[in-house]
């Protein structure tokens, strides 16, 4: 009885600490769904915040969102998986460059979409499933007219934190989709050329 109380109490303290710090420094107790839900809901509240309606504050909003997504998404793992066996044909320097530019490309593409199109859609967190040790799949649904969209996140633990390494939209894996494209490009081009291609795409976006 007494120990149960102590346990309840420490859980409460833990919850308060978590709330106050807003950080998941105690990720050992965090489930993959929680690790996904907290940052996503923070992003949604940033998107809803009337303060950022003013175009002058757009960049600020974007930076805040990017900060969150860079913690949530493991762009190194995403890059490795999108390149798969080709990863090893990149020099360590090229690997770093690739991760950077691929992260920029993904952020730009999806940030434009999210910032430009968000109309108060809610996200329902449906389920989480362990697919292997340290690997999980969290299924969600974006409530949107005229029909909802299913979005599933593949996550793994890196340094005791759950991070996203793939996103499945209506059954289509983002990483597998890029994998097919990169594989095709790398049969004819060098890693440097692929990095250049991505850079060009990112620069055009920024130019706009």
């Amino acid at each position: 009885m007494f120990t149960t109380r102590i346990r309840c109490f420490s859980v409460l303290i833990l919850a308060i600490v978590l709330l106050l710090t807003g950080k998941s420094g105690l990720s050992a107790v965090t489930s993959p769904m929680e690790a996904l839900k907290i940052p996503i809901e923070t992003v949604l509240s940033l998107l809803k915040d009337p303060k950022y309606k003013d175009p002058a504050h757009r960049q600020q909003q974007r930076n805040k969102i990017l900060e969150i997504t860079h913690t949530l998404f493991d762009f190194t793992e995403m890059s490795k998986r999108a390149l798969a066996r080709n990863w090893k044909s990149f020099s360590p320097q090229e690997q770093l460059q690739f991760v950077d530019v691929f992260a920029d490309h993904l952020s730009n593409t999806y940030m434009d979409k999210v910032q430009g199109e968000y109309k108060g859609e809610t996200i329902v967190f449906l389920n989480q499933e362990m697919i292997a040790e340290g690997k999980a799949m969290v299924t969600t649904k974006v409530e949107r007219e005229p029909s909802p969209i299913s979005v599933d996140y593949s996550m793994l633990t890196v340094d005791n934190q759950w991070r996203v390494y793939d996103v499945n939209i209506e059954g289509v894996s983002l990483i597998k989709n890029y994998r097919t494209q990169f594989d095709q490009i790398l049969t004819k081009e060098t890693p440097v050329q692929l990095i250049e291609r991505l850079k060009k795409k990112v620069d055009i976006k920024i130019g706009n």
Binding site: S31, V124, F125, E133, G134, A136, S147, S150, N160
Partner: peptide
């Protein structure tokens, strides 16, 4: 990519995760 109602149920946000807390392991 953009489709349709394929959900037969909606357990909502309150999924239970107390018991299946996964073991964390660093890569």
């Amino acid at each position: 990519l953009m489709l349709s109602g394929m959900f037969m149920f909606l357990p909502g946000v309150q999924a239970v995760y107390s018991d299946d807390s996964p073991t964390l392991q660093t890569r």
